[in-house]
Computed example of a mutant assay.
Amino acid sequence: MSDTLEAHQLMDEWLLHLRGINGAAEKTISAYRQDVAAFLGFITTHKGMGCSKAALASIDIKDMRAWMAASRRAGLGARSLARALSSVKSFYRWLGEQFNLPITSVLATRAPKFEKPLPRPVEANAAKALIDCVEIQAKQGWVGARDVAVMTLLYGCGMRISEALGLNGDAAPLPDSLKIMGKGGKQRLIPVLPIAKQAVQTYLRLCPHPQEADQPLFRGVRGGRLNPRAIQKVMEQSRMQLGLPASATPHAMRHSFATHLLEAGGDLRSIQELLGHASLTSTQAYTAINQAHLMEVYRKTHPSGS
Results as ranks from 00 to 15, higher is better:
Ser2Ala: 11
His8Glu: 15
Leu10Asn: 04
Asp12Thr: 05
Trp14Val: 04
Leu18Met: 15
Ala24Met: 04
Ala25Pro: 11
Asp35Arg: 02
Ala37His: 02
Phe42Trp: 02
Ile43Pro: 00
Gly48Met: 07
Met49Val: 02
Gly50Tyr: 01
Ser58Gly: 10
Arg65Tyr: 01
Trp67Glu: 01
Ser71Leu: 06
Ser71Asp: 03
Arg73Gly: 06
Gly75His: 06
Gly77Glu: 07
Ser80Phe: 08
Leu81Lys: 05
Ala82Ser: 14
Arg83Tyr: 05
Ser87Gln: 04
Glu97Gln: 07
Asn100Pro: 01
Leu101Val: 00
Ile103Trp: 07
Val106Phe: 03
Ala111Met: 15
Phe114Arg: 03
Glu115Tyr: 06
Lys116Gln: 14
Ala129Val: 04
Asp132Trp: 09
Glu135Met: 08
Lys139Tyr: 11
Asp147Ala: 04
Leu153Val: 09
Ile161Met: 14
Ala164Trp: 00
Pro173Lys: 14
Asp176Ser: 11
Leu189Ser: 10
Pro191Ser: 12
Pro191Tyr: 04
Ile195Cys: 12
Ala196Trp: 01
Lys197Arg: 15
Val200Gly: 03
Thr202Ala: 06
Tyr203Ala: 07
Arg205Cys: 01
His209Glu: 03
Gln211His: 02
Gln215Leu: 00
Pro216Thr: 04
Arg222Pro: 05
Arg225Ala: 13
Asn227His: 11
Asn227Gly: 04
Arg229Glu: 14
Ala230Gln: 08
Met235Gly: 00
Gln237Arg: 14
Leu244Pro: 08
Ser247Gly: 05
Ser247Lys: 08
Pro250Met: 04
Pro250Gln: 04
Thr259Ile: 05
Leu261Asp: 12
Leu261Gly: 12
Leu262Asn: 03
Gly266Phe: 10
Leu268Val: 14
Arg269Gln: 03
Ser279Leu: 10
Ala285Arg: 08
Tyr286Val: 07
Thr287Lys: 13
Thr287Cys: 13
Thr287Asp: 14
His293Glu: 06
Met295Cys: 14
Pro303Asn: 14
Ser304Tyr: 08
Gly305Ala: 11
Gly305Ile: 10
